[in-house]
């Protein structure tokens, strides 16, 4: 938790320094992407959106590919999950 808060603080500090210069240089898309990614990463690190990230990263891989993986395992005779 404390490590997450420390890293999130670092990310916020970097965003305060770097993001305004991106908007000044007319790199608006880059600036918006910067802020969006920094916010997404920081909120998760301080423990707000962990479940959401867990779904974004792994649950959909599980839902989409595990049935095929199980079928392949049965095909090769190496078992698979029930």
């Amino acid at each position: 938790m404390w490590v997450g808060i420390a890293v999130a603080a670092l990310v916020a500090a970097a965003a305060v320094i770097e993001a305004p210069s991106l908007f000044r240089e007319s790199a608006k898309t880059e600036g918006i992407l910067y802020l969006a990614l920094a916010a997404a990463g920081s909120f998760t690190l301080i423990g707000y959106t962990g479940k959401f990230y867990s779904f974004v990263f792994l649950r959909w891989v599980d839902i989409a590919f595990l049935p095929i993986g199980n079928w392949v395992a049965h095909l090769f005779g190496t078992g698979g999950a029930s």
Binding site: G4, A8, A15, L33, L37, A40, G41, L45, S54
Partner: peptide, 18 residues
Amino acid sequence: TLSVPVAAVTLALAANFT
């Protein structure tokens, strides 16, 4: 320029991997 936010997202994903 995106190195810091991408690193933060990577860390967040790694922490919530499984």
